[in-house]
Design a protein around this nucleic acid. Structure first.
Lengths: 204, 204
DNA sequence: CTCAATTTTAGAATTGGTTCAAGTTTTCTC
DNA sequence: GAGAAAACTTGAACCAATTCTAAAATTGAG
């Protein structure tokens, strides 16, 4: 089943994503006109809408790639966490945050977040919510791992704690991308300060 | 300085907000055409753009009214909190959540949140961030009050704790408005469960 | 009352995302 | 390898927000 059509389709997908990623970064999300993306990808406007429901979904595809990389990177920390609860959390949070601005600009994040709340039932909206869920689960998995290692009390509600940590971090990240002048080190130390309260509550 | 002109201006503001609020609720944000809002408010399209920079700012003005009401309602709890830390938090959270859907539909919230992240520097974007800040401060004020009453440990970092609680609640609220079928009781109990972890960490 | 400044108005023009009817290309069948 | 069906591509047309323009209305000062 890998006829010409399949190959061309995959190739067009790739070209559209690459063109969009480049233009989004250069001109910003709004500045990157569909017409320009189509021209750069060497397809017609109609083809773009054949592949993606709307402009937001193109950005969504790019964001998904990015977040999946972050999830992969996080796996390393969960498998082999620092032997200190605070450091373990900080390391995982650090990976999420540092990675996140590697391919996506703050402006792209703002748009992506906005679209995911605006159209929660669109393909991207659902994918974004699922990605948030995966990140939350990964944090919960870290908690579980730390419990298994005897570093966190057994009676801690891991699921609720994972949600709490993710929700707080995510909200901080949202505020962070809203302010262009905000810097990563300050973001991380603010989150560390907030998590400290939790850490004291859960260490054995 | 309260000439006829001033009064008429205030009146047009009010008519625009009322018309928009009604149409947003009836037809949804996108469904409410500027033309229709103008007609219902008995002003011209140009006048609307003279009063508000764009459609989002109209929604922003409505949201601001709403959140300020919520802040007022919250003041009562801060001044006179239940004598149990968990209940105190739950009561305040409850007021925020229950009030929030009084005038604004979930769809209006989604749009408002999206716009505030999309355009953080617009008048509404800044106002929204400021409102979030006020809510956070109010939660911190409650913590301080509980400390003063001897219900919360003195060495607790009230500011960080307030942020943590607000960020988590806000994120939960965002997810809540993203799903039309989500219900308030479940939202509140999920937040209660998350806050329980914090409560155990901070009660004397 | 009159005039100048300000505001409102209607509507035309612009803009950019999205849709759609018509035309092409690829695949399948014999 | 010819013809038909299916899938895909195309770009012109559509729609609603926003901007712009020139005329009309309103107000406050003198």
């Amino acid at each position: 089943m890998s006829g010409l059509r399949e190959r061309q389709k995959a190739d067009r997908h790739r070209r559209i994503i690459e063109a969009a990623a480049e233009l989004f970064r250069e001109a910003g999300y709004e500045g990157a006109k569909i017409e320009a993306i189509a021209a750069q990808a060497e397809v017609s406007i109609g083809t773009i809408y054949n592949y993606y429901q709307n402009k937001g979904d193109i950005l969504g595809a790019i964001v998904s790639l990015e977040v999946n990389e972050v999830l992969n990177a996080g796996r390393g920390v969960v498998d082999n966490p620092p032997a200190n609860v605070g450091d373990a959390l900080d390391t995982l949070v650090g990976i999420y945050i540092e990675h996140s601005l590697h391919y996506l600009s703050k402006e792209m994040w703002r748009q992506a977040m906005a679209i995911s709340t605006q159209q929660p039932d669109s393909p991207f909206g659902q994918a974004y919510t699922a990605l948030d869920g995966s990140l939350t689960e990964q944090i919960s998995a870290l908690i579980a791992r730390l419990q298994a290692l005897g570093l966190v009390r057994q009676d801690v509600d891991g699921k609720a704690l994972g949600e709490l940590i993710f929700n707080n971090m995510n909200m901080m990240f949202i505020e962070f991308v809203k302010r262009d002048e905000a810097r990563i080190p300050e973001l991380r130390s603010a989150i560390r300060r907030q998590n400290r309260i939790l850490v004291t509550a859960i260490v054995v």
